[in-house]
Design a protein around this nucleic acid. Sequence first.
DNA 1: TACTTTTCACCTAGGTGCGAAGAT
DNA 2: ATCTTCGCACCTAGGTGAAAAGTA
Lengths: 221, 221
Amino acid sequence: RRMFPTIRVSFSGVDPEAKYIVLMDIVPVDNKRYRYAYHRSSWLVAGKADPPLPARLYVHPDSPFTGEQLLKQMVSFEKVKLTNNELDQHGHIILNSMHKYQPRVHIIKKKDHTASLLNLKKIFPETVFTAVTAYQNQLITKLKIDSNPFAKGFRDSSRLTDIERESVESLIQKHSYARSPIRTYGGEDDLGDDSQATQSRGSAFTTSDNLSLSSWVSSST
Amino acid sequence: RRMFPTIRVSFSGVDPEAKYIVLMDIVPVDNKRYRYAYHRSSWLVAGKADPPLPARLYVHPDSPFTGEQLLKQMVSFEKVKLTNNELDQHGHIILNSMHKYQPRVHIIKKKDHTASLLNLKKIFPETVFTAVTAYQNQLITKLKIDSNPFAKGFRDSSRLTDIERESVESLIQKHSYARSPIRTYGGEDDLGDDSQATQSRGSAFTTSDNLSLSSWVSSST
DNA sequence: TACTTTTCACCTAGGTGCGAAGAT
DNA sequence: ATCTTCGCACCTAGGTGAAAAGTA
């Protein structure tokens, strides 16, 4: 199923004349499996991670972009789909349920006349999420029903109250602090703030194939 | 509204390594206005054409294609939209109702390192059609209801009978013979059969903006 | 009379969480 | 007990011709 909320990114500092490929992948945050403690409303470590799944890239369907396009428009990843089916034939990104993940946005400059590439990578830490097949927390469910147009059918006056919005913020804080501190699992290099990807909006709730992964994360800014 | 049936084209003889832009435009077949003679089931000339409308190109949204893609996949123009509103802001192709038109498919090879272009043009005469805001013939209506999935709601056992199918063929013959013989109005050069566009499927019924243009044409293999 | 415009019921296509049923 | 799967009602989004109303 689709990843929701949608990750949207805008770019600066690109060459308007050059061509760029923009893509997303999603990497494990740590080597742990999680379970949800209802009475504490928080995620607890529940052992080592399950075996890693085939890594897949989501190349943005509007690629290649001209630098000019990237400076003008926001790039939206609304069509990214997630699954927990390791045999998936649809090209969706494959995740383990009950594991913590970090989406990453990559931008690759197409060098003319050669095959060489420049690949920049950008992480928005506020988009870390935990994949699930069923929502573990009623507030998250409510938040998603509130914000996803396709879930309008479930809005029975259950729009989030101000108090609930505060609770959501606190949940997000907890989820954020609970993850391992700095390094992305997998040991690949991140970009600093000089990266070309400068803005994100929305974040990475999720979903899967026939089932329904989810999680939570900030909707910073 | 969308042009239906959809024009689909496949290509041969292209360079798999090169990049190509594929596009469609629709040009007047002659300088005449038509009206429909119900009792004779045929189009009659009804005077000189109305003033020409702004010419527009429909660049296929999957452009640019690699030659490799063109050799593999059929290119479908299902999303082409037509209108009779000369002030249209949506980029749709603008046509005069009750006039006869010829869709054309163009393929442009992008030359590396230069701005120069090679533009080839291909006409499928069986896709000539007359634009309308309301269908003029019950058989055409039935044919479209029969073949367009979005019109399924109007299929009340009214599927075309074998006899009706024959009548449709004869209508198409009549429409075809009625148009001016060889030259496309506007005097631009056509390609011969050595063109790179080698196959069409379906044809050019139509439709417009808030209204409903239509017409008929062959569905030659 | 001969079109053109507008609105609408009825479709296709596909994104939601729900809840019963299944799996371990 | 704790997830995962599946079918479903309910949405969004938008493509149909019918038919009533408008235009000239």
